[in-house]
Design a protein around this nucleic acid. Structure first.
Lengths: 232, 232
DNA sequence: AAAATAATTTAGTATATACTAAATTATTTA
DNA sequence: TAAATAATTTAGTATATACTAAATTATTTT
């Protein structure tokens, strides 16, 4: 049986390795709130066991093997389904679910996973807009980009928030920056790199380097094709 | 933080110590599927730590301290609420819930506990009829006795099943022996100590020494007081 | 390229928890 | 009560996982 620790390492490696890049010991240590030395030790174990879950050569970071990736996706699926369930069925707010899901994800059975998946109607996104791997571990496509890459007069729909910090999430909620919200970029100041965004009647601004503009992801809304004009 | 192991030991001691009796190392070992030697070691740790969770003197078995008992009741509450939730909200059958609840009980937060308690309407019994400790850890009264103690022509209502073995539970379900079922003891053979029971139209028998008659608990249904006759 | 800095690994240690085999204590039987 | 049996504990070991401090390797800066 794989332990909770193993699962946490695999999930962390998956999350840090965008596009199968290699992940450094230190990055992993920071993500997991452990010392680099502890991580080195654990990675060796994960690489040596049969079947191996990671590929690891000293001073060169780690990668998941294909089995390791499968296991990471399975945990990620459980995590995100749980987050969705906590919000939809038990009335949690989106800033409360991460921690709870982090514990539950190691405890539920396949049956539990299937039941909540069914109750929720096989959702494809969790409350933060993160894609939920399907039961065969495929990930829904995602063409979202961080807010920092948008410029006026682009319009977009917020579809995802990467951060899990409850304070950030509550702030975003207050600003109306939640998945599904339509936004318009109304201004960008080259000088101080500040974006002004319109969300409904509100017009918050955020610096291009800020947590918000890096962690809130949106999909551009293209202009309706010509000939689709609306008669008033 | 208390570990899952600690919680399992406390729960086991609580379950085996009816009425604050002392629990033996071996009994505990069997219940937890561990060797007696391992149990001895763990009990020492639980007794020595501050605050102590058990009282333990060698060769004399263990008892929970009042803190240990509180913790046991808290876990038991979580376990039984979870079992109830799995049946009521997620469509599990009563023979499937024990194992799942055994894992989840160590992972849920107080918030989770409160939410499912509320969703379920603060239930007092789990699907097996076991009493659910209230949020202040008091246990609903229970005057049920094992089927083996009943004799014709007593009538009773089944209110509880002690065993968790899925096969037993499925069998009971098939027989209609589920909490809430009204039964009549129709015969008792002194010779081979067999009870005949009527449940609806069925009339199963069970030996007085059998698992069923020891683990199925019922409350006697007293004759309606005189003057309460029903006009047809 | 040498020096300085940063990242990583090694070595040694600690803890919780389990195990087995042997020793001890308690209980039952003859 | 002595012998036999059963229950329990001790002693020693193993594993997974973390830690710290020191050593090493890699990267960056001068």
């Amino acid at each position: 049986m794989t332990t909770q620790q193993t699962q946490d390492y695999l999930k962390a490696i998956y999350e840090l390795a965008s596009d199968h890049k290699t992940v450094s010991t230190t990055a992993l240590a920071e993500h997991l709130f452990l010392t680099p030395a502890s991580v080195t030790g654990m990675l060796k174990r994960l690489a040596v066991q049969k079947p191996a879950l990671v590929r690891y050569k000293k001073h060169q970071g780690v990668q998941l093997t294909s089995l390791g990736e499968k296991m990471a996706l399975q945990i990620l699926r459980q995590h995100r389904l749980l987050e969705t369930y906590l919000v939809e069925a038990l009335g949690y707010s989106w800033d409360e679910v991460h921690e709870e899901a982090c514990r539950l994800e190691h405890a539920i059975s396949e049956q539990f996973e299937n039941r909540i998946d069914a109750v929720l109607g096989r959702p494809q996104r969790d409350p933060h807009g993160d894609p939920i791997p399907s039961s065969n571990l495929e990930i829904p496509m995602d063409r979202s980009r961080p807010l920092s890459e948008f410029r006026p007069p682009q319009k977009a729909v917020i579809c995802r928030v990467n951060g899990k910090d409850p304070a950030l999430l509550r702030r975003l909620d207050k600003l109306g920056m939640i998945p599904g919200a339509s936004i318009t970029i109304v201004d960008y100041s080259e000088l101080d790199q500040v974006l002004s965004i319109r969300i409904g009647t509100r017009e918050p601004t955020c610096s291009v380097g800020s947590t918000i503009s890096r962690q809130v992801l949106a999909e551009e809304l293209l202009e309706p094709p010509a000939g689709d004009s609306q008669p008033s």
